[in-house]
């Protein structure tokens, strides 16, 4: 009995905060998605309508934005994987210890350099009169300027450490004799990576992908500053929150739904328990 009171005492405040403020707000947001806005006063009126969700599908601009955002998030996740695996293999299995330590710090440092600072940095790099065009122009390469490509590169830049660090840690933990056995049995390096390394580091890749995917899905500041006219789901939520809260609320359900579907589809792999 005493332990129960103790537990209640420990949990009371945090649960009041997280459920009473946060979960309550999320539920109210969800409820607002079914409400209506008075077109004259733009005041929100409680009620029940599916019109706001209908808008998501019927309005071609909204639908294409949702699809574009999903594709951007998937591209960023794929790019982070393609970078993290070779990076992790090099750091864990090829680099000398001093270089390994240096690289481990080097990939962690930018994590703290500031979200907007990094977006500003990409803006400075890819602007028309910027560094990218200056450095690669002489080779006849023109940069992507401010476009969807730059948004993907910027989001990769922002979220790469979330993938690179767990993947590197996982590769480091692989026992060395697995590699010896594989080589003794005649497998080449490429085959060892494909049949030994990749299956074993899959949980780490999935854990990292949850971050790269969901963080990209909700982002819209990158699109605003390096995307030119690119719109993402967040852009639509942000531009509707004051004028038409129910539409913004309905749109906020979209990234939540994508994240939940993604989590459910990776849950079977058992990666969630290892996070």
């Amino acid at each position: 009995m005493k332990r129960r009171t103790q537990l209640a005492g420990l949990l009371a405040l945090p649960m009041f905060w997280l459920v009473g403020i946060y979960i309550f707000s999320l539920i109210m947001l969800l409820a607002t998605a079914f409400w209506t806005t008075d077109p004259f006063t733009s005041k929100v009126k409680p009620g029940f309508t599916l019109r706001n969700f209908e808008q998501l599908i019927v309005n071609p601009a909204y639908l294409s934005t949702a699809v574009r955002t999903l594709l951007i998030a998937l591209a960023v996740t794929a790019l982070c994987m393609l970078i993290s695996v070779p990076l992790g293999i090099f750091m864990a299995k090829i680099a000398k210890p001093w270089l390994r330590g240096l690289l481990a710090v080097a990939i962690t440092l930018p994590l703290w350099a500031g979200y907007l600072v990094k977006i500003l940095a990409m803006r400075v790099t890819f602007t028309d009169e910027g560094f990218f065009n200056w450095a690669l122009g002489p080779f006849g390469i023109t940069g992507p300027s401010f476009s969807v490509t730059t948004v993907i590169l910027t989001l990769t830049y922002l979220w790469l450490p979330y993938m690179a660090i767990p993947v590197y840690t996982a590769i480091r933990q692989l026992p060395a004799n697995l590699f010896d056995a594989s080589a003794d049995l005649g497998a080449g390096a490429w085959r060892t990576i494909r049949t030994i390394v990749l299956p074993l580091i899959k949980p780490a890749i999935i854990a990292g992908s949850i971050f790269t995917f969901s963080l990209s899905l909700g982002d819209y500041i990158a699109a605003k500053f390096v995307g030119g006219s690119t719109q993402m789901i967040g852009s639509i939520i942000a531009s509707n929150i004051n004028l038409n809260p129910p539409v913004a609320a309905a749109f906020a359900v979209v990234p939540i739904a994508f994240v939940v579907v993604y989590l459910l589809s990776v849950q079977r792999t058992g990666a969630l328990e290892r996070m």
């Binding site: 946060y22 109210m28 969901s214 789901i233 967040g234 809260p245 939540i256």
Partner: peptide, 21 residues
């Protein structure tokens, strides 16, 4: 799960939900 949720969900969702409240 409840503790991780505020950083697992996109910031725009958290922001808009609290703004709404």
């Amino acid at each position: 799960l409840l503790i991780v949720l505020p950083i697992a969900l996109p910031g725009v969702v958290t922001g808009v939900a609290l703004n709404n409240t």
